[in-house]
Design a protein around this nucleic acid. Structure first.
Lengths: 66, 66
DNA sequence: CTAATTTGTAAAAAATACTTGACATATATT
DNA sequence: AATATATGTCAAGTATTTTTTACAAATTAG
């Protein structure tokens, strides 16, 4: 699973902490997801995409073998 | 979180067990997700949407308060 | 350069997702 | 009606995600 969170955050010019607050999770959770350490729940993925006003599939991409 | 899994399954004419096998989870997991009992991981949500050849946001919808 | 902010990381605990096995109910087939 | 197939559900266990606290490293601002 890859994602464009860092890029979308840069576009909005918001920090990991800002994003975390907007989707109601801890900053560490955003950090881990952004770093691809694990797959968030679908609900969280959708909330993140919503902050960026982009479809989920544009923010997150499955990789081979997933 | 609501979803259109039942409808999409009907279109493809496949059972919960079929879908479970195609996305590599147990039948009970598909049953629970279809019934809205919990939010799957994003990876699983994307795999399910991929089976239906639809964007994630068309198969799953966040509800108020999420 | 120094201070402040942001990001990375770690460990333990809590919460949630998923599995397995089993059985009951419902829907379809013959 | 009887049989088979599909769905609903439950409980106990495993796996994964998320929180909290804390600190180190990197980047930005003054």
């Amino acid at each position: 699973m890859t994602n464009r969170i860092r890029i979308e955050r840069a576009i909005l010019n918001i920090t990991q902490a800002d994003l975390a607050e907007r989707v109601q999770v801890s900053r560490q959770t955003i950090n881990a997801i952004e770093a691809g350490k694990y797959s968030p729940t679908l609900a969280l993925g959708m909330k993140i995409a919503r902050v960026f006003d982009k479809p989920v599939d544009e923010v997150f991409q499955l990789e081979e073998g997933d």
